[in-house]
């Protein structure tokens, strides 16, 4: 794990005090220490803004105890702090699906998910699909059917496709097209993606 993530950024004692007290506020919502609009001192305000929040979560089966700035999205946490760059940033606004990951088995857009809200959750990314050197059946199917060209949308497509089959939304071509509509492919590999999903589903291996 990246050391920088767990080391407090503030060195002064005052900052550390603020960090601790603010973390308590953040978790317990204790009213007396909540800063009131209007009576905040600028320093307090600034220190408060940059406080990191402790978060424990599981990513691809591995437990992480992290310290995260509230504004960091799950996507940026994965890519920038944990260097799991398989999950892609396309639009960063929920419009393309490149950042699709599973949270507790459900597919979501990591770009619109705040990492601090994921405490206790199990996250699966494209890096967590394969079993060692053995590819996941959906990964194999995408290769077999040429389900990509540039490959940028592919991790999101595959994460979405696995969920699509598990949800029972891959019963027909139309069904697949509708339930894969949250993943845009700029290279236009849609027909091959549909074929790959049908094949992986038919293969009957556990997805």
């Amino acid at each position: 794990m990246d050391k920088k993530v767990t080391t407090p950024i503030h060195s002064s004692a005052r900052r550390n005090f603020l960090k601790q007290s603010s973390a308590m506020v953040a978790l317990a919502l204790a009213p007396p220490t909540i800063l009131k609009a209007g009576d905040k001192k600028v320093e307090d305000q600034i220190a408060g803004y940059f406080e990191k929040v402790p978060v424990k979560l599981e990513i691809n089966g591995k437990a992480h105890a992290l310290s995260i700035e509230p504004r960091v999205t799950l996507l940026d946490l994965l890519r920038e702090q944990l260097h799991l760059t398989g999950t892609k940033k396309g639009c960063d606004h929920g419009q393309c699906g490149a950042c699709t990951v599973h949270i507790n088995g459900k597919r979501v857009n990591a770009c619109l998910t705040l990492a601090v809200m994921q405490g206790g959750n199990k996250i699966t990314t494209i890096e967590g699909l394969a079993n060692g050197d053995e590819l996941h059946p959906m990964q194999e199917a995408f290769i077999k059917h040429d389900g990509f060209q540039c490959g940028y949308c592919t991790p999101g497509q595959i994460m979405s496709a696995v969920a699509c089959v598990k949800e029972g939304h891959a019963e027909s071509d139309d069904d697949i097209r509708e339930y894969m509509s949250g993943n845009i492919c700029r290279c236009g590999c849609y027909t091959n993606i549909v074929d790959a999903i049908k094949d992986a589903k038919k293969g009957g291996k556990s997805l």
Partner: peptide, 9 residues
């Protein structure tokens, strides 16, 4: 509305 991923959130 939206996409399967967004509806899950």
């Amino acid at each position: 509305g939206a996409s399967p991923q967004l509806r899950n959130m």
